[in-house]
Amino acid sequence: MIASHYNYWIAVVLLMIGLYVVMSHSNTIKKLIGLNVFQVAVFMLYISLGKIEGGTAPIVDAAFTVYSHPLPHVLILTAIVVGVATTALGLALVVRIHEAYGTTDEDEALIADRREAERT
């Protein structure tokens, strides 16, 4: 069980760390860093599904007969690109939040909004 499943478990542990960072930190940049770790962990989970013992990269060549499965690779290529797109948009929002509130901290910004609402 351990030898055949440790790959999955490591990915799960990394995923937990990423999820914890996203949920616990109120700093917006740190949240996005956590989101990245979380997503990479999911990518590892997927890629491990395609691996086959004694296989090689799925580039057909007369010298090989056993290849790892290409489909998870294709899916994760897509997911990586989706990830960077999300991060870029998130960071643009962080920059604008910093300009509008003078902070990159979600809680501080919420408090600022609440104060503003009380004043009016």
Binding site: F43, M44, I47, S48, G50, K51, G55, T56, A57, P58, I59, Y67, S68, P72, H73, I76, L77, I80, V81
Partner: peptide
């Protein structure tokens, strides 16, 4: 990813 034969993914 390279170790698990996903060279394109590793590259990306």
């Amino acid at each position: 990813f390279v170790l698990q034969d996903a060279v394109d993914v590793a590259f990306t």
